[in-house]
Design a protein around this nucleic acid. Sequence first.
RNA 1: CGGGGCGUAGCGCAGUUUGGUAGCGCGUUCGGUUCGGGACCGAAAGGUCGCAGGUUCAAAUCCUGUCGCCCCGACCA
Length: 567
Amino acid sequence: MRTSKLYAPTLRETPAEAEVISHQLMLRAGFIRKAAGGIYNYLPLAWRVLKKIERIVREEMDAAGGQELLLPIVLPAEMWQETGRWDVYGDEMFRLKDRHGRDFCLGPTHEEMITTLIRDEVRSYRQLPLLLYQIQNKFRDERRPRFGLMRGREFIMKDLYSFDRDEAGLDISYKKMYDAYSNVFTRCGLTFRPVEADPGAIGGKGSHEFMVIAEAGEAGIVYCDGGCDYAANVEKAELHPIAAPAAAPLALELKDTPGTKTIAAVADFLGLPADRTVKTLAYATDKGLVIALVRGDHEVNEIKVQNAVGCIALEMADEAAIAAAGTSPGFMGPIGIKNAIVVADNTVMKMANTVVGANQGDRHYVNVNPGRDFTPDIVADIRLIQEGDPCPRCGTPVKAARGIEVGQVFKLYTKYSRKLNATYLDENGQEQVMVMGTYGIGISRTMAAAIEQNNDANGIIWPAAIAPFQAVVIPVNNADPGQRELAERMYADLTAAGLETVLDDRDERAGVKFKDADLIGYPLKVTVGAKAVAEQRVEVKTRRGGETHFFPLAEATAAVKDLLAKL
RNA sequence: CGGGGCGUAGCGCAGUUUGGUAGCGCGUUCGGUUCGGGACCGAAAGGUCGCAGGUUCAAAUCCUGUCGCCCCGACCA
């Protein structure tokens, strides 16, 4: 490819709409252009990267026994109504009607379609396990698309579905996918970490997310750096109750604590550390008002509360809802509260002579002993893990990081196969429900994640395996026939040797070409200047690390190939 | 959906407070000089000031409505 013909409009300045680095660089380097919020055009450079990622994904999926197919994007409503997700998905689903008024949606995911596809034709245990996948655009009308390709409304996803006879089979399929995903992201040159995840609304029990470690990541993760390899999404990370020092229970007492609406204020007023108090938060849910209790210095993990209560919707209750429950913001507590589900963190139950709000303004109870003075409806681990908390496996203090979720693997069990009647006959002629798994990779998000993790002040630094081109040849002065000729020759030789090469044949000054090359992020830059012509050698610079090598012309092609292989 | 910010040339922005001929930088085109890290000189093209309505002799500017975009929050297979 010649730069003079390449459709890659680069920008000197960063468009104002882009906040995160991957978004900025993809716009500046001419990879993407926006069509609407969260919807992008992929220009030739981006498309080349995406195809490379897809290729790696295909190879790994095929190696793991997957078969590629292609399901429709436009999906009829009926199957979604069968599983109940037509309603559950809500506004996040792009919906449309055909000319007859029949309901359709643009596929946000394909559990329904794949399951209804195979249920009639897979009838025997002999046909299982079955691993089917596709790579396709997905549509989710996100409430808030953001960060360029990181959270779009239309995005490219690989989705694989496994169908097994039983849970043992699912475990095998799940392991294959887990390993395949590790291979994919390793081959893409990414620093990532599989973490335990909360399965969320899709249901099922086991789940891991593959997180590319990056500051711009939307997800918080914790990992054990010492004793073991535990790693989890903060939403999921378990915490064992912390034992409190033994203390003789004192008599419950109601105290005036004027103006102490925060834990810090109460603790200060009573002369106690925050970890001797209990924090109470109120949530409005589809099951009514929920009061969550954690130790004063801890934070509530809302996902865990949601799971403990078994509710679908959960948000902080407003003042009106709190007042309706007969309590007062800043002075809420479990003692005497009515019309609310009280959920206590397991650590709270270990506390003695603690402090809770008295459900009336400016008053707290002191010397509160959980179990004696109040009995929660639910006791569970509802605490949000923080850096330094003990690893649930080995007790070593955990580290915190941020991650971009580029893949997720789920054990669905029979959640969809049961609702959609995907059954088979076993050896004994008994009808059994298929056991399913679902496995996604965000292809376009992986591209963005790769940039988040690989960039510098000058632009993108592509991992060689997914770079749009592997090398760029730059004649320093295009007006010099000797340089032009030598550059043409290098370009032809490298191309013939199977390297994806760009020749920057533009009549631009060297600086412009170097800047564009760095911005786009070609792994290798082959520079042809006056010295190269005089001495019959070329200069090759690596984008990552910036080392410069000189090679005699005769050896240049082999040396470039060699260098690339080492990247 | 709640809160905040922004829509003026391809990109980055000024002009809006106080209404009066729409500007600057970059980029683009043409001519010339230059040529190893975003050159210089000269000429030129390019804008319904997001959209609609209103006030006014006169609206980018004031008022009302509306659409879009970005950020924070909520939410997120």
